[in-house]
Simulated scan of single mutants.
Amino acid sequence: KKILCKFVTLKFEASPTAYYIPDFISEDEESYLLQQVYRSPKTKWTQLSGRRLQNWGGLPHPKGMLGERLPDWLQTYCEKISSLGAFSGKTANHVLVNEYKPGEGIMPHEDGPLYHPTVTTISLGSHTLLDFYAPLSSTEGATPQTEESRFLFSLLVRPRSLLILQDEMYQRLLHGIQGHERDTLTEKVVNLPAAGAQPGEELSRGTRVSLTIRHVPKVIKTKLMLGRR
């Protein structure tokens, strides 16, 4: 069955393309996914500074990820997103589930070379602003570079939306989330029309759960040798 989605394409000088798809999933699907996240064993949660997360599919490693079978509730959405061609014909095999409470965020970072150069994210429960930054310059003697001076723009990410970042949006720019409880939307939020919002709006954050769905190209496949000594 073909999945029909309206792609909203955002173009910038420094980055070719991002895809923001509002209402990629229904409210019922959102409720179902949140139930599955919070029904997961407590041992699946890892507490980090500013958020907690679940890792599904294996632990990415330069030598290869020891692959683990994804549960059906995640496999369904890995296949749904992969069918859009997000991973160049490959099927996503890794999911990070992040929980952000109001006031929590993540420092600007890049996802690195262990993944296919595409990151896809389904948001559940609340909006957030995803901020993008220029990388640190290697120019010696330049003016000290602060997070503020390197800030480029933000994307408003609504609940039930899908965000796809590829090419330079993935490989060059850093992305992060400020630890705010409220967001005031400005002209620096470059997808306001696509997200159904207006400059000047104020939005209060609730608890947001994100499903970060990616493809790890290098996987170690293990074979159980049963009955052999």
Rank of each mutant, 00 (worst) to 15 (best):
K6G: 04
V8P: 01
F12G: 01
E13K: 10
A14H: 14
P16D: 06
A18P: 01
Y19A: 06
Y20A: 05
I21M: 11
P22L: 06
D23W: 01
F24S: 06
I25S: 02
E29M: 12
Y38M: 08
P41I: 00
P41A: 01
K42I: 15
K42Q: 14
L48M: 14
G50E: 03
R51C: 02
R52N: 13
Q54C: 11
Q54D: 00
W56M: 15
G58T: 09
P60F: 02
P62S: 05
P62V: 01
K63C: 13
K63W: 09
M65W: 03
G67D: 06
E68S: 05
L70P: 01
P71T: 08
W73S: 07
I81C: 15
L84A: 13
G89N: 04
H94G: 11
V95C: 09
V97L: 02
V97A: 00
P102C: 14
G103Y: 13
G103F: 06
H109W: 09
E110G: 05
G112W: 00
Y115V: 06
H116D: 10
H116S: 12
H116L: 12
T118V: 11
V119M: 08
V119Y: 03
T120I: 00
T121H: 03
I122K: 07
G125I: 08
H127S: 12
T128H: 03
T128Y: 04
F132L: 00
Y133R: 05
A134D: 11
P135V: 04
S137H: 02
G141W: 07
T143M: 14
V157C: 04
R158F: 01
P159D: 13
S161K: 00
L163W: 09
I164R: 02
I164E: 10
Q166G: 02
E168W: 11
Y170G: 06
Q171R: 12
Q171H: 10
L174K: 15
H175C: 04
G176Q: 03
G176R: 03
G176L: 04
I177P: 07
I177F: 07
I177T: 13
H180S: 07
E181V: 06
R182A: 08
R182M: 11
D183C: 03
L185M: 11
T186P: 08
E187K: 05
V189S: 02
L192R: 09
A195E: 07
A195F: 01
P199N: 15
G200S: 03
G200A: 04
G206F: 04
T207M: 11
T207C: 07
I213C: 13
H215R: 13
K218M: 07
T222I: 05
M225D: 09
L226T: 06
R228P: 10
R228A: 14
R229K: 12
